[in-house]
Design a protein around this nucleic acid. Sequence first.
RNA 1: GCGGUUGUGGCGGAAUGGCAGACGCGCAACGUUGAGGUCGUUGUUUCCGAAAGGAAGUGGGGGUUCAACUCCCCCCAACCGCACCA
Length: 816
Amino acid sequence: MFEEHESYDPHAAQDTWLPVWNELDLNRAGRRPEAEKRYVLDMFPYPSGDLHMGHAEAWAIADIVARFWMRQGYDVLHPAGWDSFGLPAENAAIKRGEHPAEWTYANIDVQAESFRRYAISFDWSTRLHTSDPEYYRWTQWLFLRFRERGLAYRKNSAVNWCPNDQTVLANEQVVAGKCERCGAEVTKRELTQWYFKITDYADRLLDDMQQLEGKWPERVLLMQKNWIGRSVGAHVDFTIGSRAVTVFTTRPDTLYGATFFVVAADAALADELCAPSARAAFEAYRAETRKLSDIDRQSSERPKTGVPLGVTAVNPLNGEELPVFAADYVLADYGTGAIMAVPAHDQRDLDFARAFDLPVRVVVDTGDEDPAVTGVATAGDGALVNSGPLDGLRKADAIERAIEILAERSTGSKAINYRLRDWLLSRQRFWGAPIPIVHCESCGEVPVPDDQLPVRLPSDMKGADLQPKGQSPLASNEAWVNVPCPSCGGPGRRDTDTMDTFVDSSWYYLRYCSPDYTAGPFDPDAVREWMPVDQYVGGVEHAILHLLYSRFFTKVLHDMGMVDFVEPFTSLMNQGQVINQGKAMSKSLGNGVDLGGQLASFGVDAIRITIVFAGPPEEDIDWADVSPGSTLKWLARVVRVATDIAGMAGSDRDAAVDKAVAKAVDEVTRLIEAHRLNVVIARFHELTTTLRRAADAGTGAASLRDGMHALAIMLSCYAPYTAEEVWSRLGHDVRAGDSVHDSTWPTVDPALLIDDTVTCIVQVAGKLKDKLEVPPGISEDELRALALASPKVDLGGVEPRNVIVRAPKLVNIVPG
RNA sequence: GCGGUUGUGGCGGAAUGGCAGACGCGCAACGUUGAGGUCGUUGUUUCCGAAAGGAAGUGGGGGUUCAACUCCCCCCAACCGCACCA
């Protein structure tokens, strides 16, 4: 009965509606001043070339949430910006003989255009770039405030060094002993560097996770918890010569089992303690240790090595003298860099003891075999033995008692230690925010006064000027480096390091609330309105870098009185990766899928829907398993059905259609709220089929029009162009401002959700035997009788032992 | 080694105590068409059966329950994170 249709051309729809939307500007935050605020945020992109499949997934997910909230009447902030400082720009600049800004801003323009075409509902007025002086001015300002609070400081220590990128790395940027960015093996260097004192916030970073429980992925919270690595134990003072040397231990109960003492070979302490007679051997060993890369050093299969330092340490509990060794299995920067070794109850100590033929003394009777014989240390619970005043106590009690005794003698106390290290933030590279400090012969470290910020990067350095040389390229720019000391006016030199780009990204979500604010990093009123972020979306790879740093920044800003919350991101979703043929896309495998090509073939909407329909948002998508072609077919079907319905005259209603629409809207609403974005598409398909069939039947025109409106509005979150096309065909004048993207989520009449009859399952011994259509209000007794009367229920004449009735849905008959 | 996640048709996935396999891909058939399918309809877990129907079935084993993909215990496999952190 309906006319033949021309096939739906998604690209024509894109060309039609995108310019109209740009004109209408419907995604502005603050459009609904009276409404409740919602803040949706994707982890902002790094401008490395054009958008790829990974971007397409992350932003599709966040965009659905943002648009859903807009349709629901919230005032939504969905901002756009770029994390635009960083190494790739610098490397590209060296290769091309340019300034890094050229490559960076050209890429940003490409990505911005792609985001627009990909129909992300950004409020473009928020646009920021961390490499803009207007932005990094405030990154520098924050650094200075942190420094005033003692949270940014300089120290000399052995640091992670990437020989390829020629820069230091934070602990978090070393993955399995390799540079997170380039994969080169990380080595150690002794350098003076800037640190943020994140360890001061270790406890609060742990404790405040309570607020995130259930709203952040469990595994992210666990990763952070393990990364912070809180250990409860004791500090114990041993005496070596005339000095006290403190160790950290979680097992003070095993003090009587200590048979030797170990100091980290690369710690200053080892050097200080070393007896003259042992010096030559020690220095040779230390030199060996320093040559090892982290990746070698961290292997637990490596045999234990070490050298005696020619001194002894006195155990404060029993006065025993223990030989002192320097070894590389003790870490210089964990605890105090020194340990008491209890080989019976610690595997590493036991391995060392066996290698060096040292005594093994059992002090906890765990019921296991003697570690000295088996080579397996026993870490379990048991009664203390050979331990003087601790004998007979169980492990937990012995730990407490040992600490009491130590405290009485002032040779120890309860202590908490963290695996978390301070955040090394200085980098010996060019394309980052300069550290706003001037070094002066007479005044020392002098902060650049606030009114002289930003300390701008020089614009005249390009290409080979930026070549890494072990110190920042800025150091060779004499005109930039030499400035008068802000304090005394004498000759000064700028700090030539730049900040880790993770500093930039630790506060961008605050800047988005008032991107043009000039009186501070953000307008406190705007932040009070929008923050914290209601929905944050990003990859799990940032579980311990960006997310931990941002939480730290927020807590510091809270302590400074600048924000009134302690957690920046209320809810977090980690989207999965887009892979191909079972493997991550990579150049070497040649299995990359080009987003631009996919969009050219199938259009934006088909790709967005294909991505979310492929599975739950947090699961990986294998592009080899999906079929954007069939998604496009369905979109075309929706447009056809809409066109047919738009052409139907009449005001008659169809109760079945009304019910189906109400149910679909009700379910879709709840599914989106629960982030079950893939299941929503199934409901869309079903609703489309319902409308198609009813339209073919030719009745209920008014119901069909309402139903198609509801579908268009819901679809607007997923397939913005197709939804607008449908909306327009239904008679709305989009150009005049009547856009589906300014529409309101359909309301549901609760009466329509109640069915006249319910399907009741009849089971015998838990197996399905019959289905009955019954009124929803049926009584238990009626239903029981009805079920027992079913011809499908054959009990062989035996009385049922039990009949479970869950009216009106189920009857389960348990035979006798 | 420690910690965690996941395991459902040929495939992606639905169902989180109550009809296993929604929805889609693929495959097949029928209709429409001059033909084609980016159109419409139907079928499609496996085994037995012509059919009606029956049996089995959510990685494996055990348990709780009237009832288990779902909750509990053990095992296996794959993946992820941390890894000499005292």
